[in-house]
Design a binder for these strands. Structure first.
Length: 362
DNA sequence: TCTGGGGTCCTAGGACCC
DNA sequence: TCTGGGGTCCTAGGACCC
C-alpha cells in the first residue's frame, strides 16, 4: 500500500518484505526492486471501519482499552478474574482472524512498554508472554531502537557512543546516559530496566491540532494554484473543526521546496475562529512569508491549532456577514461531499483579484 | 521521477508583564 | 553607572510515532 506517483510505501505485505521492500521506501524505488509489485492506494475509511470492529473484540474482555492508533492499543486485563490473560489474548486473536480475516500480534506483560515490544517482536500473528519479573532479561539483548523514543537520530547518537543494546543502557548511570541522550536519559534508563509506570488510559484526549498536506504531482511555482490548494485545505479543516465543535486561534503554513528544504510559518488570531474566511488572509500572508526562495514547491501544508471548545461568540457587527460565509461554506462542503473534494474550487481569478498578485500564468 | 500524511511533544529565544 | 527575577505567550524548528 502506498502512493503511486511520488509516494512512499505505507505498508508492505510479508511477501513484499521478503524482497526487501519496507516502509517508508519511495514507491518508485520499490517498483525498481520488484517490477511485478502490486501497489494499492490507501482506503482509510475502510481501515477505520475495520479498526472499530477489531477493537470491539478487545472490549469483550475488559473495558480498560487504550486505543493508541488505528491499528494499535493496550488492554488492561488485571480486572478480569474469569479469564487468564493468555486465554483472553488467544480468543481475541482468533475472533479477529475468523471474522475480519486479519492477523494481529499480541504481547502480554506487566506494563505497556514490554507488552508492545513483545508483540512487535513476534509479528505477524504472534502471541508473546513476558512473565512478571522477566522484563529486564527480555529487553537486554534487543537493539536500542526497539525502545519508544529512539528514532533514527537517537539511535545514531547512542550507537556513536557504543551503546547498541538495551542491556548496555540498563547498567549505566542515568547521569552518564545524559551525556549522550540528553533529557531523554531518565526515561530511557527506566525503560531499559523494563519499568514503565504509564497507566492504560481509556479516555480519548481531544485533538490538539488539525492539518492537511499535499505533495504535488509536479513541483510548482504557480502562486494562484498554490493559494487555491491552500484554501481548499482550509475549507476541509474548518469543516472538521466545526464538525468537532471546535474553533482555532493559530494557523500555520508549511512549504517544502524541490530540494526538500522545509519552512513553516504561523500566526495567531486574538480570538478563536471557525470560518474559512477568517483564515484565508492569514494563510495568504503566511505563504508569502514562508516562500522566500526562488525555488519551486513540492508540498504545502495547513495546520489549525490552539483549539477551543465551541464556536466563537457572535459579534454584533459581523454577524450577518458570518452567516453568509457559513452558508457558502456549508454549500461548498455539501457539493464536495457529493461530487468530490475538487468538484468546486475557488477560481484563480477570484484568488488573484483578492490577493492583487499578478502572474503570467494564472 | 527518490524521499507521504496526520499527528504529539519538546526546546529555545524573544516579547512582554509585574 | 549598571542592570533583578519570575512568569506567560508566541513563533520556529526538530524528533518521533504509526
Amino acid at each position: 500500500v502506498g502512493g503511486l506517483k511520488r509516494g512512499i510505501v505505507a505498508s508492505a505485505s510479508y511477501e513484499a518484505r521478503k524482497l526487501g521492500i519496507y516502509t517508508p521506501m519511495p514507491t518508485s524505488q520499490a517498483l525498481r526492486v520488484c517490477p511485478s509489485l502490486i501497489v494499492l492506494p490507501g482506503d482509510f475509511e475502510k481501515y477505520e471501519l475495520f479498526s472499530r470492529l477489531m477493537f470491539s473484540y478487545v472490549y469483550d474482555f475488559s473495558p480498560e482499552v487504550e486505543i493508541t492508533s488505528i491499528d494499535e492499543g493496550y488492554c488492561d486485563l488485571k480486572g478480569n478474574r474469569r479469564v487468564q490473560p493468555d486465554e483472553a489474548a488467544e480468543k481475541i486473536q482468533h475472533a479477529i482472524l475468523q471474522t475480519l480475516k486479519i492477523g494481529v500480534s499480541e504481547g502480554i506483560a506487566s506494563n505497556k512498554l514490554v507488552s508492545q515490544i513483545a508483540s512487535k517482536l513476534h509479528k505477524p500473528r504472534g502471541l508473546a508472554v513476558v512473565e512478571s519479573g522477566w522484563e529486564r532479561p527480555f529487553l537486554e539483548p534487543l537493539e536500542v531502537k526497539w525502545l519508544p523514543g529512539v528514532g533514527p537520530k537517537m539511535d545514531a547518537a547512542l550507537r556513536a557512543a557504543g551503546l547498541t543494546h538495551i542491556g548496555q543502557l540498563a547498567v549505566m548511570s542515568p547521569a552518564m546516559l545524559r551525556l549522550v541522550a540528553g533529557n531523554s536519559a531518565e526515561q530511557l534508563h527506566q525503560f531499559s530496566l523494563g519499568e514503565d509506570p504509564r497507566p492504560v488510559v481509556t479516555s480519548r484526549e481531544a485533538a490538539k491540532s488539525y492539518s492537511q498536506q499535499e505533495t504535488f504531482a509536479t513541483d510548482t511555482c504557480d502562486e494562484a494554484f498554490l493559494l487555491a490548494t491552500l484554501y481548499r485545505m482550509v475549507d476541509h479543516l474548518v469543516e472538521k473543526l466545526q464538525g468537532d465543535n471546535h474553533s482555532a486561534r493559530t494557523v500555520s503554513v508549511k512549504i517544502r521546496y524541490s530540494d526538500m528544504d522545509e519552512v513553516e510559518r504561523s500566526l495567531s488570531l486574538p480570538e478563536p475562529a471557525d470560518l474559512a474566511e477568517d483564515f484565508y488572509p492569514l494563510v495568504r500572508q503566511l505563504l508569502k512569508k514562508a516562500w522566500d526562495r526562488r525555488v519551486r514547491l513540492r508540498l504545502v501544508r495547513v495546520r489549525l491549532s490552539q483549539l477551543y471548545r465551541g464556536s466563537p461568540l457572535p459579534d454584533l457587527f459581523s454577524a450577518p456577514q458570518r452567516q453568509r460565509h457559513q452558508a457558502v461554506q456549508d454549500a461548498l462542503s455539501g457539493l464536495r461531499k457529493r461530487f468530490g473534494a475538487r468538484a468546486l474550487m475557488r477560481s484563480h481569478d477570484w484568488i488573484l483579484a483578492k490577493t492583487k498578485i499578478k502572474t503570467k500564468h494564472p
